[in-house]
Design a protein around this nucleic acid. Sequence first.
DNA 1: CCAACACTTCGATACTTGTCGAACTATACG
DNA 2: CGTATAGTTCGACAAGTATCGAAGTGTTGG
Lengths: 101, 101
Amino acid sequence: MTKMKDKDAKALGKMFKALAHPNRLQLFVEILEQSEAAFEEGHDCFANAIMEKLNVGAPTISHHLKELVNADLISTERKGKFLTCQVNPDAMKRLGAFFAR
Amino acid sequence: MTKMKDKDAKALGKMFKALAHPNRLQLFVEILEQSEAAFEEGHDCFANAIMEKLNVGAPTISHHLKELVNADLISTERKGKFLTCQVNPDAMKRLGAFFAR
DNA sequence: CCAACACTTCGATACTTGTCGAACTATACG
DNA sequence: CGTATAGTTCGACAAGTATCGAAGTGTTGG
């Protein structure tokens, strides 16, 4: 039986909370898929492009991105005028481990 | 690149939403660990025992359990006066697969 | 049948949060 | 510079929901 530490539970909870909203989940999946495409095709994942896919305004996207970052699910980087998003591999590993029992 | 179907996203979203609340996550983890212990020691996971660990009333537990069931994360079974909880293995597999990219 | 126990349903309340418009900052480009 | 574009911050409002107490259902054991 794999016991869980309190700290882990809190971090996981934050992640689940971040993924709990449909728009934010879609946002995350979009970044996930774009990141995979980026790796193959050599371009970055631009927040700009994602916003067009979701049917919400810029302030909302900004808010959601901040929550994903805050949950350590992704990280963002300013590239001149634009913002690029990267999935945090550690988060994926951690979540994957949680469900692999 | 692993594309995702709309139906999958909706099911996953439900699961994340169910795990998003601290008490519900703790509830789920408790069931998870109890289930593992149950397998080894041959007893079931009783809702009754879990309620004593969380600091909330019976109505709240009932409500949360229903949401976990509704998200297909667990299933419950009446055993006489008591209620037993089992983790749904399919849900674990599905979630594990999502984060294993 | 009655009392005790485990859980559920209902209604109310308090808190959280997703969303937007408006105003702001930062960068690029003539 | 001045204008356009990308993103952020702020304040407000609507919608969702976690929680509880009270009352209800089902089951066990006397």
